[in-house]
C-alpha cells in the first residue's frame, strides 16, 4: 500500500532522514518509534506531501506523491503533530470546511455525525475549537483525518494530551480502524506501540534501526541467551555444580537476594535450551529452584538500546550484517 524508497531529507547540513526505506501492506498498523527529533514527523510529512524529500520516492497505492499529488492526498487522512485546527470556528464549521476542502462525496451530515460519534466529540459539536481542552482538540484532529474515510491513515502521536481513559479509547479506535485501513502512527510511548501495532519501525537519527513485531524485536535483540536463576543453598557449592551442568558455558553469581538464596546468571550456547538441565541439577542436589527468568528484553529496553549511541553501534553493525546475510541467502 505504501512504498517508501531511499528517502533522504536534509535541513541545511543536518541530515534528518538518511536513506529510509520500508513498505507497509494494506490493512496493517505500523508504529514509528523513536526519540524526539529522530525523523518520525519528517517521514510522515513527506508521505503526506507536506514536505518533499531530497532523494527517494514515496508511492501510495501505486501513485507517486510527486507525480500525482492530488491522487495520493485523497487516499490519506493525516493528523499532524499539532492538529491543524482553526481556533475561530466551531467544531461543526471546522469539519464542514475540511469536508469541502477534501472534496468528500459521502453524504455530508450523516458522515460527519458518524465520525463525531466515533471519536466522541458530539457533545462539543457546537463549541468553538479554541475553547476546547487539549484532549478534545486532539480528537477533533483525529475526526478531521477520518473525513472521507480514506484508506490510509497517518497519525502523528495521536494520543498526546489525552487522559488515560481517552488514550485507551483512542487506541481501541485505532485498532478497529486498522481492520479496514492502513495505519501508520508515531509515538514515543512504547506501551502504546506494543498495544496497538502489529509491526514496529524504530527510527533513530534518521535511520531505521529495527523493524519487526514488538515481540520479535525483544527476542532478536537479547543477544545473550542468558537465564537468571535463584537457588537456595550454599553459594560456592552450587556455583561449582552449575559449571559442570551439561551445555552451560558460563556462570557467575549475582549475590544473595534473600536470606540463604543466591542469584546466578547462567549462559548456554546459542539456540540451546538449558532450562531442563538446570532444573534437573537443582532437584538432584536438593537445592530448591525458586525462580528462573530469561533476560529477553522488554520493548522498553530494546528501545533504549537501539537509540542509545553507546549500545547502538555494535547492534547496528550486527543488524546490518544480518541484513546483508539475509539478502544473499
Amino acid at each position: 500500500m505504501i512504498e517508501v524508497k531511499n528517502l533522504t531529507k536534509r535541513y541545511g547540513t543536518n541530515v534528518a532522514l538518511d536513506h529510509v526505506s520500508f513498505s507497509v501492506e494494506e490493512g496493517s498498523i505500523v508504529g514509528f518509534l523513536g526519540p524526539n527529533g529522530a525523523g518520525k514527523s519528517t517521514t510522515m510529512n513527506i508521505i503526506t506531501g507536506y514536505l518533499s524529500a531530497g532523494e527517494g520516492e514515496v508511492t501510495v497505492a501505486g501513485h507517486s506523491i510527486l507525480e500525482e499529488p492530488a491522487e495520493v492526498k485523497k487516499l490519506i487522512g493525516y493528523l499532524p503533530e499539532i492538529p491543524p485546527l482553526y481556533m475561530d470556528m466551531t467544531v461543526r464549521e471546522y469539519l464542514d470546511f475540511m469536508y469541502q476542502l477534501k472534496k468528500v462525496t459521502l453524504p455530508k451530515e450523516k458522515h460527519i455525525r458518524e465520525i463525531c460519534a466515533l471519536v466522541k466529540i458530539t457533545e462539543v459539536y457546537d463549541r468553538l475549537v479554541g475553547n476546547l481542552s487539549k484532549g478534545y482538540k486532539q480528537r477533533v484532529g483525529i475526526a478531521q483525518a477520518l473525513l472521507g474515510n480514506p484508506p490510509v491513515l497517518i497519525l502523528d502521536e495521536p494520543t498526546v494530551g489525552l487522559d488515560p481513559k481517552q488514550i485507551i479509547e483512542i487506541r481501541n479506535l485505532i485498532k478497529n480502524l486498522g481492520k479496514n485501513h492502513t495505519v501508520i502512527l508515531s509515538s514515543h510511548i512504547l506501551s502504546e506501540v506494543q498495544a496497538v501495532c502489529q509491526r514496529v519501525l524504530v527510527i533513530n537519527r534518521g535511520r531505521i534501526v529495527a523493524d519487526g513485531t514488538p515481540d520479535k524485536l525483544g527476542h532478536d535483540l537479547s543477544t545473550d541467551h542468558r537465564l537468571i536463576i535463584r537457588v537456595e543453598g550454599p553459594e560456592r557449592e552450587i556455583l561449582a555444580g552449575l559449571k559442570n551442568v551439561n551445555n552451560v558455558t558460563e556462570v557467575h553469581s549475582l549475590g544473595e537476594k534473600e536470606p540463604g538464596v543466591y542469584e546466578y546468571a547462567v549462559e548456554g550456547p546459542d539456540g540451546k535450551d538449558i532450562r531442563r538441565d538446570l532444573f534437573a541439577f537443582c532437584s538432584r542436589n536438593g537445592a530448591p529452584l525458586l525462580a528462573m527468568r530469561s533476560t529477553e528484553l522488554t520493548l522498553e529496553e530494546v528501545f533504549l538500546r537501539l537509540t542509545n549511541e553507546e549500545y547502538a553501534h555494535p547492534l547496528r553493525k550486527k543488524k546490518r550484517h544480518e541484513a546483508k546475510g539475509g539478502e544473499t541467502a
Partner: peptide
C-alpha cells in the same frame, strides 16, 4: 498555527 498542514495535505492545488 500549523493549519497550513491541513491545506497543503488536502487534495487542492
Amino acid at each position: 498555527n500549523k493549519t497550513d498542514q491541513a491545506l497543503i495535505t488536502a487534495p487542492v492545488s
